[in-house]
Design a protein around this nucleic acid. Structure first.
Lengths: 114, 114
DNA sequence: CAATATTATATCGACCATCTATACATGTCA
DNA sequence: TGACATGTATAGATGGTCGATATAATATTG
């Protein structure tokens, strides 16, 4: 928590896909992982995440399955699809292009490429 | 043109303030400059810019003055205020914090420096 | 000289991502 | 038992950007 929330716009999908690149995860776990990995810069809200997960599933970038843990609690795990991995790669490229452009305008080291 | 538009959200204010850091400019000029400096990655739309300029002026981050050029055309120049410079510095820091966090999640070189 | 493109500022309605608030259910610990 | 953490979920509000549109002067070109 600290960065302007609107900066986040558009990169959340990429971050979610990235988290799922190496292992299946459930929603709550993603929130915690994102918070941990970003040194508390990102505090993804449940109200943002779950609708997003559903839409990503509809677009076939993710699949889900339920798993019962400790006799009662049911967790919904999400798994990235090949299509999702492809989208992640596209998003990553866009991200690099975008940040390079901003940095160039800011006058810092640019590393512009296209 | 090319990056996901939603990535832009929130950074436009910073980019505008940055443009005005070194010289006064008028709206149309900002659109062109931003396009040029970003190698056509940013195509700021007039419908985005003008309302934004007005709101920045209301927040006293900018001031404006009109100047008649070539006997007829009136250009509206915008000038950054001390308050605007301060805001620019804050935005720049946020931007660095935010990109460091994203890069860290992406697993690339992080250069985190909260 | 008329049509079109470019320069220049401006507003409006729509869209979309995110947030806050809320809801509901279970497990744990004091 | 009551508070807190875990866990998934939806609804409504907010805010930034875009496309469409309007207006008007200058420059270009057929």
């Amino acid at each position: 928590m600290s960065v302007d929330k609107s900066l986040l716009t558009g990169s959340t999908t990429m971050l979610i896909l990235k988290l799922l690149e190496s292992e299946d995860m459930y929603g709550y776990q993603m929130i915690e992982e994102l918070n941990r990995k970003s040194n508390n810069v990102f505090e993804l809200k449940a109200g943002t995440l779950y609708p997003l997960l559903h839409s990503l599933e509809q677009k076939e970038l993710l699949t889900s399955y339920e798993e019962t843990v400790e006799k009662a609690r049911v967790r919904k795990y999400y798994s990235i699809t090949p299509k999702g991995r492809k989208r992640l790669e596209e998003k990553r490229e866009e991200w690099q292009e975008y940040t390079a452009a901003v940095n160039q305008v800011l006058g810092g080291a640019s590393f512009a490429r296209a």
